[in-house]
Write a protein that binds this DNA or RNA. Structure first.
Length: 194
DNA sequence: GGTAGGATGGGCT
DNA sequence: GCCCATCCTACCC
């Protein structure tokens, strides 16, 4: 496991940009929830405009409202009735776009994450998938709409940035429409899902 | 190493 | 009623 010290919290301007840029640039940042934290190693962009795979593609509903709001907030939803998925809202206020966080490399609070994820046999399995990630960090539907530029759930710059080679690949489990290279992973990182 | 099948409930047509 | 941005277990190489 890598030792990572945390730098400043990402400001709202970081998120107030095109969704694809935010998704790419989130790889290598540190997702923190209380005592548990990990380096983001896999994301997916859901631009919302001209992308039928995005939940926001069919307009504002009770579920998708936050995606159309100001950037730097959490969009959490329930998938398959069992697992939460955590997204961070991008784009200026009024424009849809969010980034799904798919995997982190645990860097602190690992024992806490192990207790939350008893099925994980190895550290690589703790948060290598969107549902595993939220379980490991204790993120739930209660975080819907949370401001991730302040509070217990935030994203931080690593204190000493590592050079990370980010690669774009097709998104995972998008089968109902044409798929695009909107998944961003840290090349060679063993904590990536799949 | 691999994969088939089931769990499980909200959102939307 | 059907779909789903998933995960786990059992079972097979």
């Amino acid at each position: 496991m890598v030792i990572v010290r945390f730098g400043p919290i990402l400001r709202r301007a970081f998120y107030e940009r095109p969704t694809l840029e935010v998704a790419r640039d989130l790889v290598g940042k540190v997702l923190v929830h209380g005592a548990a934290a990990g380096v983001i190693v896999e994301t997916e962009a859901y631009p919302g405009r001209d992308d039928l795979a995005s939940h926001s593609a069919r307009g504002i509903t009770d579920r998708t409202r936050v995606i159309f709001g100001p950037p730097g907030h959490a969009y959490v939803y329930l998938i398959y009735g069992m697992y939460e998925c955590l997204n961070l809202v991008a784009e200026p206020d009024g424009q849809p776009g969010c980034v799904l966080l798919r995997a982190i490399e645990p860097v602190s609070g690992v024992e806490l994450m192990r207790r939350r994820r008893p099925a994980a046999r190895k550290i690589e399995e703790l948060a290598s998938g969107p549902g595993k990630l939220t379980r490991a960090l204790g993120v739930t539907l209660a975080h819907y709409g949370a401001d991730v530029t302040r509070g217990p759930l935030v994203v931080r710059q690593p204190a000493e940035p590592r050079i990370i080679d980010v690669v774009a690949t097709p998104r995972i489990n998008i089968n109902h429409c044409t798929e695009l290279p909107y998944r961003f992973i840290a090349r060679g990182n063993r904590f990536v899902s799949g």
